[in-house]
Amino acid sequence: MTADADDEGRYTTALETAGRLLGVPLTGFLEPGPGEPANGADFKRLATVHTFGDAWPRTEVLDTRTRALVSVTIAATLGTLEPLRGQLRIALNSGVTPEEIVEVFIHVEAYAGAARAFDSYQIALQVFAEADRAREDG
């Protein structure tokens, strides 16, 4: 895939948005994995630009904080635990409180089931502890 200057600018902006939301640069997650085909970089670039360049900046109707709560809910309901970890970081970095996140899990439990909510909640506990450690060190 060849990128022109506009594409490169959109990708750079998307990476900056991701870093701001996640609190860490996304670039480490974009490194090629063992055995990854060359077009894996295309997939990662397209997903990054669409997610962090197109979807997250759309704050005219839903602000970032609300989008973060929606994203936590979606990841928890789908049971995508590693993406959930990132969504929880984004939520905390966007002003969502741990108490509000717990309320999301109460609602997920009611509609998606206790097992799904409990598995996801374990990831939330890890991210809460990580955030506490960062505050103590920071």
Rank of each mutant, 00 (worst) to 15 (best):
M1R: 15
D6Q: 15
G9R: 11
Y11K: 01
T12F: 14
T12G: 15
T13N: 14
A14H: 02
L15C: 14
G19T: 13
G19P: 07
R20Q: 12
L22D: 12
G23D: 07
G23I: 09
V24D: 14
L26E: 08
F29Q: 15
L30A: 04
E31G: 07
E31R: 07
G33N: 02
P34G: 01
P34M: 01
G35P: 01
G35E: 02
G35I: 06
P37W: 08
N39S: 14
N39C: 15
G40Q: 03
G40D: 11
D42M: 15
R45W: 11
R45A: 13
L46I: 12
V49C: 11
H50C: 13
F52N: 04
G53M: 09
D54Y: 02
D54C: 05
W56A: 03
R58A: 15
R58C: 12
V61Y: 03
L62N: 08
T64Q: 11
T64K: 08
V70E: 02
V70A: 07
V72N: 10
T73H: 01
T73D: 00
A76Q: 08
T77N: 04
L78T: 04
G79S: 07
T80C: 07
E82T: 14
G86E: 14
L88C: 04
R89N: 09
N93C: 01
S94N: 05
G95W: 03
V96Q: 00
T97L: 06
P98S: 05
E99K: 13
E99W: 04
E100H: 05
E100N: 01
I101F: 05
V104D: 00
I106E: 00
V108H: 02
E109G: 12
Y111K: 02
G113N: 05
G113A: 04
R116N: 02
A117F: 00
A117G: 09
A117R: 08
A117Y: 03
F118I: 12
F118C: 09
S120V: 01
I123G: 09
L125W: 12
L125P: 06
F128P: 06
D132C: 12
R135N: 07
R135S: 09
D137Y: 01
D137A: 10
D137S: 12
G138L: 09
